[in-house]
Design a protein around this nucleic acid. Structure first.
Lengths: 343, 343
DNA sequence: TTGTAGGCGTTATCAC
DNA sequence: GTGATAACGCCTACAA
């Protein structure tokens, strides 16, 4: 009962009184198999409702037709959009996507990577945890020849492939826009110091100001741990300066939400008394009344697509029988962020 | 090079001059294996960095330790939250999650279901497409003894397991709240007629009104295809009635966003001139100035958890060797929605 | 054009 | 306690 056998290649072979290899080849339309045989096999397969057993194929071929995707958090629009891009691309290759959420917990991340490794995924796309500082579990993957493409949150490590977004372009556009509009005191609410993302923002911010002959003011640069309270406090500290900024650039949209709320509490009118520009992760600013002047867009969907594209180039090169081709070298793709104004 | 062999049970056996069966048993701490042997096996396995090959195990055991999850759209907060619940639960069982997005395209849904079937997932959680009207691909799953739990968007079909949310409770609370506040002309912007979800809303709406001795007014009930334009048009049609509603209940938050925008264009003050209540799918109303008075919450995370729980009860009952236990019967769980006021 | 046979890594059923 | 062996479903040299 439990074991009412599903049709297999063997079954078809038996009924047709041919060998399993013939059936296998016929099903793959191997040219060496005669037309009639091929036809009969296909026909019977159809009748029996035969479907190849991928677990057997995976086992035999050492390929699972599955990629693993590990992201910090699916509930962030940035990541859920990215995974759409990944999933779409994988679908075109007839691949499935094994999903894991690290929830920014390095231990959990490690566990996920490991179970995906035992699943023998053909490749992985990973956006690391905020706190990942040990990359051993990633190195382990090379042992299994599992290619990995990092994405957005990438480790500080040489010889890896990744897709990320260059915050510089968008941020410089943002600064230019603000400066054009006459702003001279432009604040920055940055993220935690240990994040690369924070450093990038800070450096570009400094560069953008000095390029425009504005002397950066230490007091205008604050950090937030990205909790709501911290965001609010950072905003307050800026707005309560006796020489308060007339524009603020925030680490991301969530910070912007809190900043906007606090600014309003201070009786300020958004984008009039204080202009806000932030790094995009929300899809619905258009619906909000008090929204940033503009967002620095990072194109998560396209990034996801691109990461998949690179990953599949590895996967496909691996399975190419051509032994002579040398291994593909790592690729680092950096998208330019872009300033999108909210009208 | 390509084939630098990974350590296997066989390798360990050879080195230790024992049989593979001994190694296998030792690794599982089988009681019949001597303490010393067990120890030596574990030690060598560790040294070699042995890791079980799940593809082989899946093949042999007819279990993949993977569940498939098919959702219409990950970029909707409702679903991305739900999948968190599913993923968390699966993780406790050491299961992986194979993800597919149907994007509300029945063809795509069918394809996903099929590839998951060939992957031999141990079970599936599915929220069907808006347009799914053929359930053959689901029936196919029973052939492979793949249990399936439907979730939120469930097919009209007997003998299935599902987890869904009873909209009635929350919607009645919403109506009561509005009526308490003195509203008598309460509009409904519903979704497409063919959706069960729309019918449920409509029926409950009618019931809520009549229970409160308010005679439903056909003109106050409109439908939207859920596109932005359609939402706007539906809202306008309500607001331009000479006897316009003083409160509107919308099909979901996205409709509410459009409705609010249009209401403002009509010069109305939200929740003063016209109160809005909607079915929740957005996480960030708290940041918005013009937000609904309240949302009808459907607890996606908990629903996802519950769906997983049911699914795993099936999965685990299947693998129980006890032949005598009769198959678990289907379960239908219905959560109560709840009205959450936005202060 | 088709068949034979071996093997992928693991577990399970017998034996001993 | 431990070992031999078959089996899971499929693919692929190698033969014929």
């Amino acid at each position: 009962m439990q074991r009412d056998k599903l049709p297999t290649i063997k079954e078809i072979a038996k009924r047709l009184k041919v060998s399993t290899s013939t059936v296998s080849r016929a099903l793959h339309n191997h040219p060496s198999i005669g037309y009639i045989t091929t036809y009969r096999v296909h026909k019977l397969a159809e009748e029996l409702g035969y479907e190849p057993n991928l677990t057997a194929i995976s086992f035999k071929q050492r390929k699972t037709y599955t990629i693993g995707v590990v992201l910090p958090n699916l509930s962030e629009a940035f990541f859920s959009t990215a995974i759409s891009g990944i999933e779409d691309f994988a679908a075109t290759k007839n691949y499935n996507v094994l999903l894991g959420q690290s929830l920014d917990d390095p231990e959990r991340e490690k566990r996920i990577i490991e179970t995906m490794k035992t699943h023998r995924v053909d490749g992985m796309i990973v956006s690391i945890t905020k706190n990942t500082d040990n990359y051993d579990h990633f190195d382990q993957l090379t042992k299994y020849h599992i290619p990995i493409v990092f994405f957005d949150r990438i480790p500080e490590k040489k010889d890896i492939s990744y897709v990320a977004c260059n915050l510089e372009s968008g941020l410089l556009q943002a600064l230019n826009l603000l400066i054009e509009q006459g702003h001279r005191k432009i604040g920055l609410i940055n993220g935690p110091d240990q994040l690369i993302a924070s450093n990038q923002r800070k450096e570009t911010y400094l560069k953008g100001l000095t390029d425009n002959n504005i002397k950066p003011d230490e007091k205008l640069m604050v950090s937030s741990s990205l909790s709501k309270e911290s965001n609010q406090q950072a905003t307050s500290s800026l707005l309560e300066l006796k020489d308060r900024p007339t524009a603020i650039i925030t680490f991301n949209d969530y910070v912007a939400l809190d900043a906007i709320a606090i600014a309003k509490k201070h009786g300020l009118v958004i984008n009039k008394d204080v202009s806000i520009i932030s790094f995009a992760n929300l899809p619905i600013w258009e619906y909000m009344d008090n929204r940033p002047l503009a967002s620095i867009e990072q194109f998560p969907y396209r990034q996801g697509e691109k990461a998949s594209e690179i990953l599949f180039s590895f996967i496909e090169s691996q399975s190419s029988t051509d032994e002579s081709t040398e291994p593909l070298s790592n690729q680092q793709i950096i998208f330019d962020s872009e300033l999108i104004k909210h009208l």
